[in-house]
Amino acid sequence: MHVPDGFISAPVSVAAGVVAATGVAVSLRGARRELDERAAPLAGLVAAFIFAVQMLNFPVASGTSGHLLGGTLAAVLVGPFTAVLCMSVVLLMQGVFFADGGLTALGVNITVMGITTTLVGYGLFKVLVAALPRTRRSVSGAAFVGALVSVPAAACVFTLIYAVGGTTDVALAKVAGAMIGVHVLIGIGEALITAATVSSVLAVRPDLVHGARGLARTLELRDGALPTASAAPTAPAAPTASSTTQA
């Protein structure tokens, strides 16, 4: 979904640049809290992984492909502020070195593919995780839905930016319909890749998944209570804990 130079007018590109710069500045502050000993080494890898997977276009309809955006994936793995920074690094590298995404459109691209996907995807993820049972499967499922919705959401924000500053005069209903339609399909691929990656990391190192920290804490408290507690009080907890962990 990389917007090239010339799609969006200069003033609106500058305005999107201000939005993107603000988002990055806020994220630089917020990421300090997210980047502890565990998350910091993982964050650079998440950016590199998203760069790699963005190269893997998959077919979505006749003559059309799509690729991962990655905002939801990054946010679930390393936290939302760090995710915005991951996406900004990826988009910067792509724009500067690979001629993918216009340099004057960098602000538009960070706003659409970095900030929007992270806000919508991670926001939805958090709501779902709070509502669902505390299991690994819930975390993967919530990541799936967050990623699924984040892509058409990004298409909506692109359409809004086009509505304000498009250099061409195409009927908005046409743009919105086509953009959202194809990006719902791309969202399915985004959701599959996101859920597969999140559940893979959850399977080997659940403690490294930012979005599963509440889950880890629950298990830990129950574990911690075990040695001192008598058999009777732990018995009711056992089925819950084991079903939690098998999920």
């Binding site: 979904m1 492909s65 195409v170 194809v182 990006h183």
Partner: peptide, 29 residues
Amino acid sequence: ADKNPDGLEKVAADKGIDAKEKDHATADG
């Protein structure tokens, strides 16, 4: 990877959003 245009490229070409697209500054990089 699929070599077809991605969602935005396809929509842009179909609907004419790309009429004023400019070459990338580092297109010859």
